[in-house]
C-alpha cells in the first residue's frame, strides 16, 4: 500500500484464492463474491452451510470457504431442507441455476417454498444451460436461439419462460423475494444487499427467502461480456423485471 492511502475494498477472505473456472464476465463469479462478502461482513462463516447444484456452479464449493453439500440435479431445495431442519440455528443457502431450480427441480423448489423452509435460495437465471453447452432453459426468452432452439424458442411448443420470482412470491410462507442483477456496480451492490437481507430474515426465522439473479452467459449467448449486459437491458429485464416481489411486513422485521 502506498503511503498516505488506506485500504477500502478487497476480496473477501471467505472467497478462497483458487481461480474460478467461470468464463470471463460471468455473474456466477460476481454472486459468489457478493455471497462471501456478506458471510464475512456478518461474521457467519461458522454458521453458514451451502448446497451446490448441478450446472456451471457445480464446483462452487471450490471457492466458498464454508461447509457445503453437493446435491443431485434439481434436489438442492430438498437437501437444504434436510440440513436446515436438523440445524435450525445455522444459515443455509441453496445456490441453483435455472435448469436445476426451474426445470428438473421444480417440485422441490415449489414445495420447499410452500412449506416456508427457512433457508435462502440463490437462483441464477441466465436463460440457458451453460455447462452442457448452451441448450434451452425453462427461462430462455421467446425467440432466443440456443443449441436446442436453433430457430428461436417457440412458445407453441416450448411454452413461455418461467417467472420463478413471481411464482414463489405467491406462497404465504415465503418471506422475501427479490430479483436482482449484476450488470452495473449499483445493481451488483443491490445483489449483495438482497443476500444480506435474506440471511437476516432467515436468522429471524421468517420463512423462505428467494433471490433471483437475472444473470448472463456470454459464452452461451455467444457474445462478449459487454454485449451480454446490453442483452440483459434490452431483452431480459423487460420480461424479468428487477425488484422486490415480496417482503416481510414492517412490524415483523
Amino acid at each position: 500500500m502506498k503511503k498516505g492511502y488506506e485500504l477500502i475494498y478487497k476480496r473477501p477472505k471467505t472467497l478462497l484464492s483458487k481461480r474460478m473456472h467461470y468464463c470471463p464476465g460471468c455473474f456466477h463469479s460476481t454472486v459468489h463474491k457478493m455471497l462471501m462478502e456478506v458471510v464475512e461482513e456478518m461474521d457467519i462463516q461458522e454458521k453458514t452451510i451451502g448446497v451446490c447444484p448441478v450446472g456451471c456452479s457445480v464446483f462452487a464449493y471450490d471457492y466458498l470457504d464454508v461447509d457445503m453439500q453437493e446435491a443431485a440435479h434439481g434436489r438442492a431445495a430438498a437437501v437444504a431442507t434436510g440440513i436446515k431442519r436438523m440445524l435450525p440455528d445455522r444459515i443455509v443457502f441453496s445456490y441453483q441455476g435455472d435448469g436445476d431450480l426451474a426445470a428438473i427441480g421444480t417440485a422441490e423448489t415449489i414445495h420447499a417454498c410452500n412449506r416456508g423452509e427457512n433457508f435462502t435460495f440463490i437462483f441464477i437465471n441466465n436463460g440457458i444451460y451453460g455447462m452442457t453447452g448452451g441448450q434451452m432453459a425453462p427461462t430462455t426468452l421467446e425467440g432466443q436461439k440456443t443449441t436446442t432452439s436453433p430457430y428461436g424458442r417457440k412458445p407453441d411448443t416450448a411454452g413461455m419462460p418461467i417467472k420463478m420470482a413471481e411464482i414463489v412470491s405467491l406462497f404465504e410462507r415465503v418471506a422475501y423475494v427479490e430479483r436482482v442483477s449484476c450488470n452495473t456496480p449499483a445493481n451488483a451492490r443491490k445483489t449483495k444487499r438482497a443476500i444480506r437481507k435474506a440471511f437476516e430474515f432467515q436468522m429471524q426465522g421468517l420463512g423462505t427467502t428467494f433471490i433471483e439473479v437475472a444473470s448472463n452467459c456470454p459464452s452461451g449467448w455467444k457474445c462478449t461480456p459487454e454485449e451480454s449486459l446490453n442483452w440483459l437491458k434490452e431483452h431480459v429485464f423487460p420480461y424479468f423485471p428487477l425488484g422486490v416481489f415480496k417482503e416481510p411486513a414492517k412490524e415483523k422485521v
Binding site: 443431485a72 434436489r75 436438523m86
Partner: peptide
C-alpha cells in the same frame, strides 16, 4: 417431514445425514 415425493424424501435424507 412428509415430503412431496420419494425423490425429495431421499434428498432430504441426504441433506440431514450430511448434517450429522
Amino acid at each position: 417431514i412428509q415430503a412431496e415425493s420419494e425423490l425429495a424424501a431421499v434428498n432430504m435424507l441426504y441433506g440431514s445425514s450430511g448434517a450429522g
